[in-house]
Nucleic acid binder design. Sequence first.
DNA 1: GATTAACCGAGACGGTACGTCACGTCTTTAA
DNA 2: TTAAAGACGTGACGTACCGTCTCGGTTAATC
Lengths: 202, 202, 202, 202
Amino acid sequence: MPTATTLTPVTKDSAETEARRRGRPRDVRCDQAILRATLDMLIEGGAVNLSIDGVAARAGVGKATIYRRWSSKEALVLEALGSDDSMIEITDTGTLRGDLDSYFEVLLQRFQADQGSDVLPHLIEAACYDPEVRRSLDEYTSNRRKPLLAALQRAKRRGEIGNNVDLDVLIDVLVGPFVYRRLLTGGKVDRVFIRKLLDIVF
Amino acid sequence: MPTATTLTPVTKDSAETEARRRGRPRDVRCDQAILRATLDMLIEGGAVNLSIDGVAARAGVGKATIYRRWSSKEALVLEALGSDDSMIEITDTGTLRGDLDSYFEVLLQRFQADQGSDVLPHLIEAACYDPEVRRSLDEYTSNRRKPLLAALQRAKRRGEIGNNVDLDVLIDVLVGPFVYRRLLTGGKVDRVFIRKLLDIVF
Amino acid sequence: MPTATTLTPVTKDSAETEARRRGRPRDVRCDQAILRATLDMLIEGGAVNLSIDGVAARAGVGKATIYRRWSSKEALVLEALGSDDSMIEITDTGTLRGDLDSYFEVLLQRFQADQGSDVLPHLIEAACYDPEVRRSLDEYTSNRRKPLLAALQRAKRRGEIGNNVDLDVLIDVLVGPFVYRRLLTGGKVDRVFIRKLLDIVF
Amino acid sequence: MPTATTLTPVTKDSAETEARRRGRPRDVRCDQAILRATLDMLIEGGAVNLSIDGVAARAGVGKATIYRRWSSKEALVLEALGSDDSMIEITDTGTLRGDLDSYFEVLLQRFQADQGSDVLPHLIEAACYDPEVRRSLDEYTSNRRKPLLAALQRAKRRGEIGNNVDLDVLIDVLVGPFVYRRLLTGGKVDRVFIRKLLDIVF
DNA sequence: GATTAACCGAGACGGTACGTCACGTCTTTAA
DNA sequence: TTAAAGACGTGACGTACCGTCTCGGTTAATC
């Protein structure tokens, strides 16, 4: 998930150092209520059925209060999702295969839980015409890759991966098939799939 | 692309065997005009800016005439896309590497031309809540995989690919990274990427 | 009710004298089914909820078969209503008061049964922009006045009504208040009303 | 015409006593523009050719802005008509015949100007299935009767009208024939008609 | 008996208007 | 200055009927 600063503040209140803005300060409870309502409605109806009007009503908040904080529905969604820290941690098992097993196990669960959700697809589409969303989505993706990258770097140091292998591309090869099946083919994603995938790559 | 029968007819006229539907038959020119208008507007403004009202106006057709044929905007888009036969043909070069080079060359052009388009992302999202779109999208994807599958089977027969390799998963490994970069990471997709990808897999 | 000839035939088959048109003759059962369906739907939902599509479906008839016979919804309604001959017969009681009592008794029942119906109002509106309906409605009204006119003429001959009284206007005075209450004031129409009305006029 | 409160506000702002509704107040210029456009279009094309889309476009206003204020086309029309204060004033001439002459003179002009208009008929029909319109139409009618009632009461006090005459019914007798001719018979409404009418009643 | 013209059902066709929804902005009062 | 409330113009939605127009298939009178 992108750090909150990427999308959140329409008006930057960059730091507390800044001489405390004048006028009534923003109510933090509003932020919370809005994000809470957003998450709830995302779970209930997906991103498509999420409307700003709906969130405002549910959060007991004026629409302007939302637009004051986020520039678009997607910015709001991205931040609402970001509040759950969903980064996959990879415990260093000492071997590449061990690390990957632990990683894919979690990834598998994520994908299965995620089935039917339209949140990611919605953001992907939104990213097409909203550069800000594009940036945030890239950052989100990038963050998710970090633990895997670390594990692969460890393996490279241990000599388990050839020196001439581009690790970024290797990640694409390992994660891409998941995304492809999930979004386009509707194919199954299970342990057998993972095993076959690893058999091919390594 | 799905064969026309998948999405097209809201009312199925399953076969010609059926004794010719009663009533005034549908005007084929309407189908053509609508699909033509849809494609034009897709190119001009993407899937998000495509409205049924707009298509109807442009095609010189009543809205009902569209809804009579397609149940949703996405069904319409899928068929409009399908009408251009965009399957990638792989000429049999005799070697796996040769086949793949020719395939990826075209795929690369496609991806670059496709950059910024929101059509595929839009369909992916639509597939989340419209099973009909889901089905058609799967079929579309499946068709696109066929030439590649054929090439890999030739290679397997020639012994270039191990007998225990699951070709379906291999395709996922070859194509998935493209999709992943295109939709999620925003990463570059070029010849260097392809070379590194093939280096890893083979 | 207007004689059928006023509105009914879009194409006039004025008389049997004409050398019997060629081609398949119109099916009388269609006329019946259509009028039947129209009456039923009028009773169920009023003139506003009456649609040609609906009548056609209910009568098991093509829409063209209706338009071949009647030029508009209202023409159809007028004829459907006309099939019940609803003229009020006044039995000659020998005195004006007796005749009027018998007449108003029936008129009263009609008005009460008619309450809530939108058929007459609908026709009145239609008459504004359809001269054919205008003509038919006038004729319909005119026919309804005839029995009353006859009774008044008898009374005039008997000397119960002054010689200088315009009987047409007298009918207006006797019937107008009914219509006025029914359509515009929403006021009660009962025996007391009739008595007071007659008290004023005579 | 009904006082504005009858139909106007979909959400009642019953009185000024209520502590000023929250949120952005309705723009009075919208009301004016909408009513203005409605009246114009009524004059041009009658009630049948009046569409909400048309009014919205002409008034330069969104459709929702209209629906926020009036629940139906007819409610809108009724209020638009009411904004022109069309009550007929009867100057006290001292004699019944004088008052009536002055009244009928204006009524006559109204009826002639009104010829061909479908507004009243349209409202009458609408009143059949919309109780709100029914109520407003009754109130409208009731208001229109008031001046006449006052004149008749003056005449009664002067002894020109018998004590046992029900003035409400008398009004029905005086006005009903007009309505009846106008709506149903298509008969002429002129000074001769009025004279004959008065000859009969008085 | 073949031809022919009008009829019939079904339903497609271009339109128009409907009433609803959500968008993102703006305008009020109150804190 | 922020907040809640909600009005605002915009524009698309999917539906319902309109009256007309093809279709294939009757059904008689005429040739």
